[in-house]
Design a protein around this nucleic acid. Structure first.
Lengths: 133, 133
DNA sequence: ATAATTGCAAAACGTTTGCAGTAAA
DNA sequence: TTTACTGCAAACGTTTTGCAATTAT
């Protein structure tokens, strides 16, 4: 990739992801910035998020809808089937030993994703929650 | 969901996923069956895969493109960044203890997904492989 | 006869891209 | 001045949906 210049848009997009605790989607970043930057386009958000993810400044969380994480160190996620949100599970550290285990059959492992699915603490609280899965 | 009737299409779709070892996508199932069932529609494939996944007969593997797995018991996957394929990692058993660990903060865990990313044994072999990530 | 299921085609959805204009270096 | 970057709008690939016809019960 070519050498890059400063861009006001990229800076704002980056700050939005870093300050957010909700692992925002591209659309969420766009909606958050649109009031302040009315001419911002969704294409620009996608382009910059993808670019920063490639350069390691952000992390992509694959799923039905891609989310972005300002925390690039390996860690564990919880996807709530009630509210649809994604949160971190700091308690569960990344276990690099698993990668070595997975290489027994000749594969070369770069990383692994460990994602829990269930009800986040907030949703587990309110009873009668109708799963949106 | 309402009581369901037998459907030749659903049966073929189910058998295709069960017999396949490649964790096929909806499109792959459709392409496989089209020669034998020329009037089959992609919408029917999607409808039936989704229905069987809800009823527990199949498993959905979320990703950029959704794949389906005939093996509904919890197990580990390897997504190859070279060929794009998904394969099973039988060596790594599902660790239910992790779910209990993840519940420390008040969450209610139903399951977890453990997916390794890297080069599958086949792709790790051939050198000069250009990653398609 | 009833209603679950189908094929079809259109729409919805998230995402990417081509292009001409704008702005950072 | 150069060219990375933008906004815009059109295109893309995947998935869903409305509907009238079909088919299992």
């Amino acid at each position: 990739m070519q050498r890059q210049r400063f861009s006001h848009q990229r800076e704002e997009i980056y700050q939005t992801v870093m300050k957010s605790h909700s692992h925002p989607t591209a659309e969420m970043v766009y909606q958050h910035l649109k009031p302040f930057m009315p001419r911002l386009s969704l294409g620009t958000v996608y382009r910059n998020l993808h670019q920063m993810a490639q350069e390691g400044g952000l992390k992509e969380i694959a799923g039905p809808v891609t989310r972005f994480d300002g925390n690039t160190t390996p860690h564990t996620h919880l996807r709530c089937i009630c509210c649809g949100g994604v949160s971190d599970l700091e308690e569960l550290a990344y276990d690099a030993a698993l990668d070595r285990l997975a290489e027994q059959n000749g594969a070369v492992i770069i990383e692994h994703h460990l994602t829990f699915v269930g009800f986040c603490p907030a949703c587990a609280g309110k009873k009668g929650n109708s799963s949106q899965l």
